[in-house]
Nucleic acid binder design. Structure first.
Lengths: 146, 146
DNA sequence: CCGATTTATATAGCATGCAATGTATTCCAG
DNA sequence: CTGGAATACATTGCATGCTATATAAATCGG
């Protein structure tokens, strides 16, 4: 079997992810946001407060990565942190008012890019696509634990 | 419609790509290689020589990204460059002997991770999955040109 | 209650990716 | 043949992601 570009799932997944990120970033850049901010925006919607660890788990990224993202978002005035009154190791993060006001636009950009990417696929195909992505994530995630 | 994590194609694609890269990197690290080297290894197999621009196109990444990757690969003794005799602006890259000797192991790692990721999917599903990734790439790529 | 372990965050160092820009050649129209 | 446009590469600056490691606080067994 010949593995080139188009029949390597890993390569295609990488390519797809980069195109998604670029499409999102182009739309969010005017708002001072980027694709990495989206999981945080969603997790902290409706005024929720979460620790860095909880945010990292929600975004499925490593803790130092989330620390850096939160640091940049704080610098940009998008999130604020306060000490967790119940755990002096932890910090609780929440969206600032400016960030909350941008949530709608972030939502719209997510929907727009999602729809653009999946155009030409029937609803059942979209479901199947997401299910297969979920299966691949489960397969690779399970293999990491070993 | 509620967009969270599991029903956002962009988020799932990003997650999938990161898991693929980690699985590949874990296997290639003992060889002194990484996932970003794979498109170069494949493009330059069988002693082929290619310019930096041709390699960037083959890998579907931007030129500065390929420049950095080739620079690291050169530092690691994996590729060598020589001036293009027909174009004094261009350089021709090829794999070194040590890199050629690692090509088989790279191939094996790619097949292993591909199979692990797609385990549980029937051959027809795998084909459909790759076809849908191709469709998403085409959709997002076409939108970039605008 | 105490020491060992676990947990939450911080930090360093690096790879991979992008956009924007500079420089040297090449190519093409006139 | 020449000047402007296009092309190939280099460089800068930054974001996103990882691993490995350090530090402080919480937790748990005895």
């Amino acid at each position: 079997m010949r593995i080139g570009r188009d029949n390597s799932a890993g390569y295609m997944a990488n390519w797809t992810a980069r195109l998604f990120a670029r499409a999102i970033d182009r739309r969010l850049k005017p708002l001072g946001l980027s694709s990495a901010h989206m999981p945080v925006m969603f997790a902290l919607r409706d005024g929720a407060e979460m620790s860095q660890k909880a945010l990292a788990q929600a975004a499925a990224i490593e803790q130092p990565t989330m620390a850096a993202t939160l640091s940049r978002m704080e610098r940009a005035g998008l999130v604020q942190r306060r000490p967790d009154p119940d755990d002096r190791r932890a910090m609780l993060f929440s969206l600032t008012r400016p960030a909350r006001e941008k949530a709608g636009a972030v939502w719209a950009a997510a929907l727009e890019v999602n729809d653009l990417a999946l155009s030409g696929l029937a609803p059942a195909e979209r479901d199947a696509f997401l299910a297969m992505l979920g299966r691949v994530v489960a397969n690779l995630g399970a293999a990491e634990t070993d």
